[in-house]
Design a binder for these strands. Sequence first.
DNA 1: TTGTAGGCGTTATCAA
DNA 2: TTGATAACGCCTACAA
Lengths: 345, 345
Amino acid sequence: MQKLTLKKIAQELEVSISTVSKALRDSPEISDDTRQKIKAFAKLYNYKPNNIALSLKNRKTKTIGVIIPEIVHYFFTTVISGIEKVANERGYNVIIGVSNESFTKEVINMEMLANGSIDGFILSVTKETQLKKDYHHLKETINQGMPIVMFDREVKDLECDKVVVDDVQGARKAVLHLIELGCKNIGIITTRDHVSVGNLRTVGYMNALALKGISLNENYILKLDDELDNDENIEQLQQEVSNYLQENPELDGLLSVNEKFALMAMKLAPVFGKAVPEQLKVIGFTDGVLSKYANPGLTTVSQHGRDLGEQAARILIDRLEEDEFEVPYERLVVETELIERGSTA
Amino acid sequence: MQKLTLKKIAQELEVSISTVSKALRDSPEISDDTRQKIKAFAKLYNYKPNNIALSLKNRKTKTIGVIIPEIVHYFFTTVISGIEKVANERGYNVIIGVSNESFTKEVINMEMLANGSIDGFILSVTKETQLKKDYHHLKETINQGMPIVMFDREVKDLECDKVVVDDVQGARKAVLHLIELGCKNIGIITTRDHVSVGNLRTVGYMNALALKGISLNENYILKLDDELDNDENIEQLQQEVSNYLQENPELDGLLSVNEKFALMAMKLAPVFGKAVPEQLKVIGFTDGVLSKYANPGLTTVSQHGRDLGEQAARILIDRLEEDEFEVPYERLVVETELIERGSTA
DNA sequence: TTGTAGGCGTTATCAA
DNA sequence: TTGATAACGCCTACAA
């Protein structure tokens, strides 16, 4: 019951290996007679060529490596689902590596895959990588001729294809919407790190205020420690959000750079006499399950993760299958969309 | 800048390929002199053996294939994260295939991977597969000598390793807890399909009632269509939940076989004059983000997905690396745990 | 101590 | 029309 190979078929049918190979690939060199015989046999015993041997021969594996910082994470899974879709349509497999927001794991994961296992990468770097600004592993990979498509977390000084979210604009749209709805004192809950998307969203927030001639109140900006953004530290974060709401009773609009912080605020607001959306309108980022099933539903900025994933896969595979060299690198911006729900009704 | 191979090193250093190979693997056959020289060169130019060539030679790829019905799904991602962890620790890569609850995609995905790309599978079958009871692709894979570890959705009549959740017991524990809290009229929101875990959880619900001598009221069982469990059909489902709550005003306890239905019920209960948890106590399944960030927090039955994934990977890799043949198949039951939160306070 | 040869499974080129 | 051979990159038993 072992896997069938060309060799075994050849032995069984008493022909040469190359005859079998040619017959199966419908080469005109082979006579109808033997072709039929061989194909029948192969079909009967369900012959399938060995992928590894093909990979070695063709020097391409038809699989793409995806490295993400986290897997239990709505946005990243939507991106993967987009990648999977396009990859499968075009005959590619997807290997997933999880870096767990660790620079070292990112490097190890890439090294594991870069030695022949895959044809190209789609990846989002860890926050640690962004902080260290150490991109040698990425540069080396690119130099060895393995294409990389980066997504979401942008690394400016790296020459490769990129698919990014317009975080600044997304946040700006959200805040402008709050202003339109009549909010006068709009706050933001963001992350402390100074490198990642949280930062861009904060910029968008400031943009919108500036656009409308509203002066920035530093007290309205709550920076939560990113390290704490995991399920063990919910209580500590809630405490910080509580303090924030208490100290800024005049807040009537709030942008959060993710869903979790938004839900915390929605949960705590009534404690401080604020009903959502009547006295406090809230908008979050991500548009995941939390937003859809929250009570009231959370208005969010959708990043269209699935589209993003599809685009990233398309760009990578196009490049892999492009025989003209020197196709210029692409930087694709995925538009955000404001999904309105009860939290801003 | 192309990838370095043994051949190129050999040419460069004017020795034979096998000398290079041996030197790099610290064979005592090679003199210190040449060994050092070769190793220095390899290090300098960052030589790494080609995985594909190794796979072909060793007839093992050191990668495991994971097929899941959905990727944008909390439970499955926790399982993957467990698999990833153990796999990486033991030097394995993980290829992910998403079947999207489609039998055909499951088969295609498996075929893509079964031809040499991986050493073994960890998979959870689609609902469609369970319904059709068509397991030929699984049986063939096993017959070809490729081990499979199935998880979560159990297929009784298939001989292979399994890691399952004790859904019956989980549901029973939950309902018993509600009874202890004083609930007299306990309902359940479950799925219509008759094959999947929803069914087992319903059995657990009935178990608990029987155990306590409470007679079963069919009206208390709401079966929602599984097909509708996606974000497009939220409204329709909500309508059904509304009707259910309205028609059973005496309900004071509720078990839901997932988080989403539980949150819908929690959102709608106040509409029918029921405060949660005062007049209606709710318990869900999954213990994902929804439970943690709901308001009030949702008490849930945790399935310990990460543990499950770790165990599945351990079992598979142990089997792959076992040289004694005929290790008996294992069926491991992961215990559930009731996580208490505000919805049953 | 070093090199040669064969094989993992496949395909392509060339010879018979 | 069919078959032998070489190659993809690596490893290893055996020969020199």
